[in-house]
Computed example of a mutant assay.
Amino acid sequence: MLISLIATKQMAEQIKKALADAGDVVFEHVGKLDSESVKEIFYSASRVSADVLIVDLDVFSGKEIVSALQGFRIARPNTRIIVIAPDRKPGDEIISSIVGLGIYDIAAEGKESNWSEIIKNILLSPPATYAQAARWHTGQLLNASIQTKERVIIEERPAGIVTVAVSATAHGIGCTYTALSVASFLSRLGHSAAVIEDSQKPVFSFLCSVLKAKEGKVEGSYTVHGIDIFPVDKSGDNGNWNYDMLLKKIKEGQYEYVVRDLGVLNSPRRREMYGADIAFVVASAAKWRWHEVIERIDGDFDIIFPLASQNNVEEISFYAGIKGTALSYCPNPFAEENDSVFLKLLAPVLPSRRKKRILFGVF
Rank of each mutant, 00 (worst) to 15 (best):
I15L: 03
I15R: 09
I15P: 05
I15A: 08
K17Q: 13
K17N: 10
A18F: 09
A18I: 10
L19D: 12
D21C: 06
A22G: 07
A22P: 07
G23H: 14
V25W: 11
F27S: 15
F27H: 11
H29A: 05
H29K: 13
G31T: 00
L33E: 01
L33S: 01
E36M: 12
S37D: 06
V38K: 07
V38L: 05
K39F: 10
E40V: 10
E40W: 06
I41V: 15
F42Y: 13
Y43W: 14
S44H: 12
S44M: 15
R47S: 07
R47Y: 07
V48A: 11
V48I: 14
V48L: 06
A50P: 12
A50K: 10
A50I: 10
A50D: 09
D51I: 15
V55R: 14
D56Q: 06
D56A: 01
D58E: 15
V59H: 06
F60K: 02
F60D: 00
S61A: 06
G62H: 04
K63L: 00
K63M: 03
E64V: 02
E64Q: 05
I65L: 01
S67K: 06
S67P: 03
A68E: 02
A68W: 04
L69T: 12
Q70T: 08
Q70A: 13
F72M: 09
F72T: 06
R73V: 04
R73N: 05
I74M: 05
R76K: 05
R76L: 02
N78Y: 06
T79V: 05
T79E: 00
T79M: 03
T79Q: 08
R80S: 08
I81Y: 08
I82C: 09
I84K: 10
I84C: 14
P86E: 15
R88Q: 11
R88N: 14
K89T: 13
P90V: 08
G91M: 07
D92M: 06
I94G: 04
I94Y: 05
S96P: 07
S96H: 08
S97D: 10
S97N: 07
I98A: 04
I98G: 10
V99L: 01
L101V: 01
Y104K: 13
D105Q: 04
D105C: 06
I106N: 08
A107L: 01
A107G: 02
A108R: 01
A108E: 01
E109W: 01
E109M: 02
G110W: 00
G110E: 02
G110A: 00
E112W: 01
S113G: 04
S113I: 00
N114I: 02
S116E: 14
I118K: 09
I119H: 12
I122R: 15
I122H: 12
L123H: 15
L123P: 15
L123Q: 13
L124H: 15
P127H: 06
A128P: 02
T129E: 04
Y130L: 02
Y130H: 05
Y130C: 00
A131C: 00
A131I: 03
Q132R: 09
Q132I: 03
Q132P: 05
A133Y: 01
A134P: 04
A134C: 05
G139S: 14
G139Y: 12
Q140G: 09
Q140D: 11
Q140A: 10
A144S: 15
I146H: 10
T148S: 15
K149S: 13
E150A: 12
R151G: 04
R151A: 10
R151K: 07
